[in-house]
Design a protein around this nucleic acid. Structure first.
Lengths: 203, 203
DNA sequence: CGGTGTGAATCTATTCACAGCA
DNA sequence: TGCTGTGAATAGATTCACACCG
């Protein structure tokens, strides 16, 4: 079912975001163009990969379209995830309330410091790092936010993979090596700053 | 000078990261392949866009290559940036020490709550939001991390643009509208979770 | 007519295959 | 011989232009 081009998937993901925050009933591809900068042609092509009926002579039915995209992209099932590494960044996400509304359930936090786990106030259960494997398989957690320091990132990633994690969001500024079938997305501010610098430089 | 394809730029950015963390003198394109998963062909093509002499019969001179990439992509000049919105996420970045080593200098934090500014311990000067325009132009800040709540993101982005900001890293889960010439990169965990879900679904 | 949907054409990126070099 | 570098070939994404529909 990998017929949808990667770039289209990325745009469709942003599009659901946009659709969720509007409160009109219908929206045309040109209106989307003026809000996102992508050409209406591109948008219509992207949407053509989505099955369902949501088009009309006055544009797309906003809600139906959003639902159809989410279902085609597999965003309609709730998924469980965990946070590994509870420093300033990791622990900030323990309190991030948007996850629920978006279909992601944060079910565990891990840190190698037992002391830190005891001190932190958290709405989510916290565990010492040595329980990672056990907890991940018990709760069938498939995704992880990796917020440990750079020098521990690779080692920790390997433990996550062994435990059965299928996707890692890596906040450490390192290039992770993972086996086929495990998906990594790098999220890190320095890379983004650099990407903007490079874009400005090359234009 | 926009001859380098976007995807190549992205890979080259990750590559500098990798090169900086190795301590060998030479590295071949196949060694890079085994560490990153990109084919050695792709890597050689990417590197061919970089001017300079760093190749040898035993591979690339790691350090020379890293320097050449950084200079071609414009990463060799120190850039100033600010953080806007000092909630849990924004204030976490005030303490993030990696920026300096990577050529980015965090020179200001802004928040609309004067109370919060007074309470926070910060190694970086903090200002109330109404001083944004003044401070940004005084220090010639070109980049901003946008960490305000979603409902304030668009409005705040517009103020940043007016103040002369050229690049915004947007942590809010909304699609920002900005004029031509201003670059936005979206960094947000929910989107990344969704991207992984979609990739798993479509493969 | 306003819109959408989509093959065909164009443009871009990736892969291949081999020349050139130490 | 083992590497890089690069034109040529392939594969992929975007844009275009127009048929079609309410």
């Amino acid at each position: 079912m990998n017929l949808i081009p990667e770039p289209s998937v990325e745009r469709l993901l942003s599009l659901t975001r946009l659709l969720d925050h509007l409160d009109v009933q219908f929206i045309t591809s040109s209106e989307i163009e003026s809000r996102t900068g992508w050409s209406s042609n591109t948008i219509r092509k992207d949407i053509s990969y989505i099955e369902g009926s949501f088009a009309s002579p006055v544009g797309y039915d906003r809600q139906k379209l959003a639902t159809a995209i989410k279902s085609t992209l597999g965003l309609d099932k709730v998924q469980r995830f965990c946070v590994v590494g509870l420093g300033r960044l990791g622990s900030a996400y323990l309190h991030y309330s948007v996850f629920r509304e978006e279909g992601y359930e944060l079910v565990a936090g891990f840190d190698s410091s037992v002391n830190r786990i005891e001190i932190l106030h958290s709405p989510v259960p916290l565990y010492p790092a040595y329980k990672m494997g056990e907890v991940i398989s018990r709760f069938q957690i498939t995704l992880a936010l990796l917020c440990v320091p750079p020098e521990e990132a690779q080692k920790t990633a390997e433990r996550l993979v062994t435990a059965g994690i299928k996707g890692i969001i890596n906040f450490a500024p390192v290039v992770l090596q993972v086996p086929e079938g495990v998906h990594v997305r790098n999220v890190n501010v320095v890379d983004e700053l650099r990407a903007i610098s490079a874009t400005i430089q090359c234009s």
